[in-house]
Design a protein around this nucleic acid. Structure first.
Lengths: 277, 277
DNA sequence: CTTGACTATCCCGTTGCTGGAGGCCGTAAC
DNA sequence: GTTACGGCCTCCAGCAACGGGATAGTCAAG
């Protein structure tokens, strides 16, 4: 017969835990001194304690352990318990996996944006865009409705999305209503499905500018770009693109003054014509 | 201003939860009627509630959310929080993964054993063994000490183990003490390291028998096998093998009467000699 | 007899809520 | 007038699996 302290040292279970297990009738001492209330454990209980710790290590709830101990004494008998429990664990695993993925998404998003901030200036730049596969939804109406398009793409392509959301603008002038545009997302792979159109955007020579601030002030940056293109005597190819590098955050809505958008225009460098002054 | 019920329907947070968040100073109503104690929420708080649910979905503890809300208002500012939290999540993920793996191990173990039970009889069988890569520890002493050998192998090769534990017996007679044997485990790949010897066991023609019961009664099954070999006039090749198909369980020690061991003896079918009657 | 190690019970705190009891208030129906 | 109902309030309990701490009784040795 061991005292609770001895039994604790033998089994590695704390005294508190042993008392708690006693209260829960999970591991009842062989004898309790009726005078002093002292608990005494027989050596056979060491084995029971070992089983309990094994099952606890496997994250079984105490109630389940109690019933397992009461009814079974062979691994083969408890396969059903193990299976059921594994399903529970797998469930939590799935949950945590998706949380972890979401966290990673947000972090890398912000990291990237931070990089862009450091690396790039807010002047007009000339770039060569590479062709890119996108899924898009052609829409007509107000620009502010593009959110619906994005959520439609998100639902259809989810994890295949591999870049920042962007919008193609087919109008050559600014339109408050009845605008002709196409929210789209870069994807890894995929086929067009009901309403969502998959295709490759062409690459080529382009001029770009970073715009910082709310979307209703995009006009200024457009002006910068158009001026630049004009002075070089180039021709803008429709559609122009807006890439939303930093918009409303995943968590905070974020201050619109911090939004960062890249405007891209593919240009045709018409070498025959001379630059217009 | 919304009443708590309205606000609950808008945000999807239960009334109880809203009261709790108030108590925790996480989401404090704009105004509390001093007479009735009624809580009233301003429309801006809808956004705050959205942020809270977002962070809760990411499994942030309430205390952390409180401090995030108090100090920040942009995703970029809370990257450190996100990172730290992701570490926590990854930790739990690792834990659950290992639990899930252990559960799977136990389950498949018992499944396999159950299969063996159904498929095989307890009569002597002739088989052709295929060569198999094992890690073993040569030992001298009492058979009951083989556990140490197994744990040594387990430590060295862990996840590369791919089969049931077995023992090679090099003695041609039974020895209580000073026996010459080698606990070993099938592995997928590996090199010999300090004390643990990796090599391929040869395949070939063999006779086997399943033994059910405690190890100290293995003698009976050995007798069966040896009789069988003798009647065919074959020669037993050393070492003989014991495969512990079902020994003490992973959780319960299990009743030794349920232990199942396969004894394997490679034989040389000496076709020149005629069978001994 | 004292000292120090050991043990006992009881209560609280953890996390993020949910459920229930009991009570206040105002409105509508009978 | 009263009863019912709906919405709100506060306070208390409970979940899981213990750990911490207070206070008091017990055991064996010196």
């Amino acid at each position: 017969m061991y005292s609770i302290g001895e039994f604790s040292r033998i089994t590695g279970l704390s005294i508190k835990t042993l008392r708690f297990y006693h209260e829960q009738r999970l591991l009842v001492p062989t004898k309790v001194d009726s005078g002093t209330g002292y608990r005494y454990y027989a050596p056979q209980l060491v084995e029971t304690a070992r089983i309990i710790t094994r099952l606890r290590d496997l994250d079984f709830p105490l109630a389940e352990i109690t019933s397992i101990l009461a009814e079974h004494n062979d691994d083969a008998d408890i396969i059903e318990y193990l299976e059921r429990h594994r399903a529970v664990i797998e469930d939590r695993l799935r949950q945590y996996r998706s949380v972890s993925k979401a966290l990673e998404q947000i972090i890398s998003n912000e990291r990237e944006a931070r990089q862009t901030m450091n690396d790039e200036s807010f002047d007009v730049q000339e770039k060569t865009l590479t062709p890119i596969l996108v899924a898009g939804v052609r829409m007509q109406g107000k620009y502010s409705d593009c959110g619906q398009g994005f959520s439609q793409i998100g639902k259809a392509f989810g994890f295949r999305i591999c870049g920042k959301p962007m919008m193609l603008c087919y109008d050559s002038e600014y339109r408050e209503t009845d605008a002709n545009f196409e929210p789209c997302m870069p994807i890894r792979k995929g086929e067009s499905v009901g309403g969502v159109n998959v295709r490759e955007l062409p690459g080529g020579r382009a001029v770009t500018v970073l715009h910082r601030g709310p979307y209703n002030q995009l006009g200024r940056s457009y002006a910068k770009l158009i001026d630049y293109v004009k002075t070089h005597g180039w021709t803008i190819q429709s559609p122009t693109r807006e890439v939303y590098l930093k918009g409303p955050g995943m968590i905070f809505k974020r201050n619109p003054e911090k939004y960062i958008t890249e405007i891209q225009m593919l240009v045709e460098a018409d070498d025959v014509k001379a630059p217009v002054s």
